[in-house]
Amino acid sequence: MAELLKVDDINVYYGAIHAIKGVSFHVDEGEIVTLIGANGAGKSTTLQTVSGLLRSKTGSITFDGQSIGGVPAHRLVERGLAQVPEGRRVFLQMTVEENLEMGAYTQPKANTPGSLERVYVQFPRLKERRRQIAGTLSGGEQQMLAMGRALMSKPKLLMLDEPSMGLAPILVEQIFQIIRDLHKAGTTILLVEQNAQMALSVANRAYVLETGKITLSGTGEELIHSDEVRKAYLGG
């Protein structure tokens, strides 16, 4: 299958702190790939570098056949890259529908009604609450809104940063079901998660990040049964 995203030897610094040390990975079209690792391992930093919010000092990032290293974040959306940021980051003072419209910012206005309809089919709860201010939604609903908002740009690659963070177990289950559904519908997904169990259960392939380096990689199945992963991330 065609390679959609290729990250090759990136190094990212926060001032003097070397946060990402020579990370390389790739995502093929139609895959769910997950980056797992402990808090502070560099998962979010990696995603933010891909989406253009942070810069790598070295290496290259290729998306859909083109180099995107150094392209500012706001120019990547129209190329088909969408990120659901950690902590959801919905616009709390705007309505649900306005949040979704913001997701379609780079799209022609005529496409918005159709995109809204698709998102509302996927997330009926958002349709019920379309006129509500996003700040009044529950955490789970905000996560759905953040995902729906990202889908409004019809991305080729959807990057999810800790979608299960801070959610009750039943909602985590629900969010992962949505991820499976999106994948089935043909969306390529790059998933960053601390919840390794859930992430590995949905992923085709996975990479383990430890203090800024990739230490292990394999299929989701392989890693779920790997002793190292079990000890470190799956509680024995």
Binding site: H74, V77, Q83, P85, F91
Partner: peptide
Amino acid sequence: KAMRAVSEDKDAARLMGIN
């Protein structure tokens, strides 16, 4: 609306494609 989005969260606004 983009201005409101930027006023709330600049990085989230960038991820929407807003300059």
